[in-house]
């Protein structure tokens, strides 16, 4: 459990971090909490030549409101996200899901940006940010650009970030008035989700039906995904158990879940349907 040799840099600013990354080339890795990266290094599954530790870049931490958006610094820890009043008020789904990440020790070290940039489809937060229609703010040698969540997660452990780019902020539209629920199915509390379903529901004006629903799926393919067919079926649906149940039967359409020790692909597809129904029912009930 000893990593191979690597160099280590601890930049003090985002500009310096980007400069170090650009100079190092593709063999550099960003250390943004290390809760996934360090185990990978210790198991010698990855051999980066340089670790760029963002721990000293204070500008990357913190949560603020910018008009109708929440802006979360990439190095904000899960613990801070869980307990932040702005997140709780305007993006409760994120706070709820972040509270289920691993255990307290991991939540104090792990960061939102680190989790998103790692892009593990079994991670809780990529699918949640997808369901929240978050926007990633990215800094590179040419300056800032923004990437919608839907375009950010490219493949298994792959994002739209280039090697010399840094995820700096996550912008989340405030979802006041939406109901939400995160249904995580795991074998033990500290384990990754076998399947997770993040649901957000905007109630119709009459207060009974569903105007709009967004559903993010965890661990149902190489990247986090949305259950688009279920979302469409729920748009304008009445909020009855039957209607939600019917829509949930579509939740696994188009997914390609893995088979591993926690469950087969067939079982995961089944779970996606059951958990989607439960998540949407709960979300509709909390609006």
């Amino acid at each position: 459990m000893i990593p191979a040799t690597f160099d280590y840099a601890r930049p003090q600013s985002t500009d310096e971090a980007v400069r170090v990354l650009a100079e190092a080339g593709p063999e550099a890795k960003v250390l943004a909490g290390g809760q996934s990266l360090l185990p990978i290094l210790r198991l010698r599954l990855s051999f980066p030549e340089l670790l760029v530790d963002l721990g000293a870049v204070d500008a990357l931490r913190g949560i603020r409101q910018d008009g109708a958006q929440l802006v979360i610094g990439a190095m904000t820890t899960h613990h801070e996200v869980v307990h932040d009043p702005l997140v709780r008020a305007h993006a409760g789904l994120l706070a709820r899901a972040a509270a289920t990440v691993a255990d307290p020790a991991v939540r104090h070290r792990g960061t939102l940006g680190g989790s998103l940039a790692h892009a593990d489809p079994a991670g809780d937060l990529p699918a949640v940010c997808l369901a929240l229609d978050a926007t990633m703010v990215v800094l590179g040698p040419q300056g800032f650009r923004t990437v919608p969540a839907a375009e950010f997660f490219v493949d298994y452990l792959q994002t739209a970030l280039r090697p010399d780019e840094l995820l700096t902020e996550i912008r989340i539209p405030a979802m006041d008035g939406w109901g939400f629920h995160y249904e995580k199915f795991q074998r033990v509390a500290q384990a990754w989700a076998v399947v997770g379903v993040a649901a957000a529901v905007r109630p119709a004006q009459d207060g009974r039906g569903i105007a709009e629903a967004r559903i993010g799926l965890v661990n149902m393919g190489a990247r986090p995904m949305r259950a688009h067919l279920t979302e469409t079926a729920l748009t304008g649906a009445d909020g009855s158990e039957e209607a939600i149940g019917r829509a949930a039967t579509l939740a696994a359409e188009g997914t390609h879940p893995p088979t591993d020790l926690s469950g087969s692909a067939e079982y995961r597809e089944h779970l996606a349907r059951v958990l989607t129904q439960r998540a949407v029912l709960a979300a509709a009930g909390t609006a």
Partner: peptide, 24 residues
Amino acid sequence: AVYDDAGNLVSGTMADYLVPAAPD
């Protein structure tokens, strides 16, 4: 402890060999 058909220990780390903790 799960082995595959080639005799590899598949549950080779605590991520795959599930030791329950207090919440479980």
